[in-house]
Design a protein around this nucleic acid. Structure first.
Lengths: 181, 181
DNA sequence: GTGAACATGTAACAAGTTACATGATTGA
DNA sequence: TCAATCATGTAACTTGTTACATGTTCAC
């Protein structure tokens, strides 16, 4: 799936500017299984506008710069339906954190514990993010399913990380004797 | 993290050929949080050989083509230690499946259920993969931690998917009336 | 007056994937 | 003999990121 389809999908929920789309993939509903930067979102919107998949409307804002609000068109709806009615590619999960944990003997206790706590913080932040948007979308089945999935997976990850926090500090202390600082 | 570091990390466990490294990231210990193709592994090994981070040895095999077995050198060990003693980047999880679920009203029941069952199969396969390599590496703390993490997260995902399988079939049937087939 | 958030956009660059190219051996 | 697995490698291509470029308004 590409950034184009992602933008169409977001716009099918509500109209938004490029900036707002970025915010949504960063810390909204979509954040935990999707990614996109300004450098890919803006060109995608411009291109889709040319192709008639989205429309724009300039919106003046008091106290803020103007924004271009994009909306999905009928043709965009068709394109989105087509893009979504395919066999999805396999999930991809990349974790430098787990790679570091795998090689923990090589990591200094300081780095290891910092990485561990940072990871836990991120998982908790993501978990809370889901909690906050969950209520407002209770009735929408897609949102409910995805939030429930995230909730299940994240709470399992957090629980595991919390259970093993103490043991890690010990292991880090032990292996730290050989690790490069 | 790049493919170079990934290869060094794998070679720090045991020597291997490019082909074997690919197998490991495909369905070994590393498969669930890492990715790499031949097109990136082979060039990385060649380059690191030039730089002295790995060494090669040609191994003749009866009944199979010869292979080039790579091993990490002392300099490679240093490079790996350095690469691993940094703040890890945030995890990245990309899921077309969850994107499809989010937009489930647009997906035909046929596609939706196929995608769902495929996802469940993949999660189960990954879960079993962990189970099989778990025993042999019981004592290694890094392996144990990572396997435990995968175990916790995957069983939560599988449980959630199984719980919601029946409800989905119903929802798919309902929304299928409007969805494009 | 300075940093943060809001807002849009481009171009160079990085990184890795896909497809191509080749070839041995085994088992059905 | 044909598909599958083992085995290595390259080059074109995709895709998206990072960094750059610019400008507003608000709050401290």
């Amino acid at each position: 799936m590409n950034v184009r389809t992602l933008c169409l999908g977001i716009l099918s929920f509500e109209e938004a500017s490029g900036y707002e789309i970025k915010k949504m993939v960063e810390d909204g509903l979509f954040s935990h299984f999707i990614d996109a930067s300004y450098g890919s979102i803006y060109p995608a919107l411009t291109q889709m506008l040319k192709e008639g998949l989205v429309s724009v409307r300039a919106e003046e804002q008091s106290g803020k710069p103007d924004k271009k609000v994009y909306a999905i068109t009928a043709e965009g709806q068709r394109a989105l339906n087509e893009a979504v009615n395919v066999e999805p590619k396999k999930d991809k999960y990349k974790s430098e954190f787990l790679f570091q944990m795998l090689l923990m003997e090589r990591v200094s206790p300081r780095h290891l514990i910092a990485a561990y706590d940072k990871q836990l913080d991120e998982l908790r932040a993501e978990f809370e993010r889901i909690g906050t948007c969950c209520d407002s979308a209770q009735e929408h089945p897609g949102t409910r399913f995805v939030n429930g999935y995230g909730h299940a997976v994240l709470s399992a990850a957090i629980a595991y990380m919390e259970e093993n926090r103490a043991g890690l500090a010990k292991a880090a202390g032990d292996s730290g004797l050989q690790a490069a600082e």
